[in-house]
């Protein structure tokens, strides 16, 4: 993985956590003790994905939520307690990604990274599963607050140096 990719990954992860902390008033911390086979077994229901392109790297960043973590975070963002997920609530996932991506894009482009604009998309439904395709490098980090868990999943193409 290139140095530029690593810089991007570090920045996007901290921007996501900061966005959730500031805009949603929820503090999630990296759950390093949870093994990949354990968090892959969880049932996820909302995922936001944004493609990343720059002269230095190409890849994608996904936020993957269990229903309880998503309801917890959206309740914090909107100031109301939600018990079920609907179309309106799901757009919040795209908004979180937009805010975090915009923050990182601005910061890194000031250092010449030339990251392009991107539009996130969101998928939701019962029991979403995570699967890596191909052999490109990927990073998956679970974040927890109590029993709530969500993942940041980042994939990069190997072709860039």
């Amino acid at each position: 993985m290139s140095e530029a990719s690593v810089t991007f990954i570090k920045n996007i992860i901290s921007a996501i956590i900061e966005t959730i902390e500031i805009q949603c008033e929820r503090k999630y911390t990296a759950a390093k003790a949870i093994k990949e086979e354990e968090f892959k077994k969880k049932d996820y229901c909302v995922s936001g994905v944004i493609g990343v392109t720059s002269e230095f790297f190409t890849g994608s960043v996904a936020l993957v939520f269990t229903s309880d973590s998503f309801l917890d975070i959206m309740s914090g963002m909107m100031g109301e307690e939600y018990e079920s997920i609907d179309d309106d609530l799901v757009d919040g996932c795209a908004e979180l990604l937009n805010i975090a991506y915009g923050t990182v894009k601005k910061k890194l482009n000031e250092h010449g990274y030339k990251i392009s604009m991107a539009i996130p998309s969101v998928v939701y439904g019962d029991k979403l599963k995570i699967k890596d395709i191909g052999n490109d490098p990927s990073v998956k980090i679970p974040f927890c607050s109590g029993d709530h868990i969500f993942l940041v999943s980042i994939n990069f193409e190997n072709s860039h140096k």
Partner: peptide, 8 residues
């Protein structure tokens, strides 16, 4: 355009 941000 995002209801989540209007609510926020």
């Amino acid at each position: 355009d995002m209801k989540s941000m209007r609510m926020a």
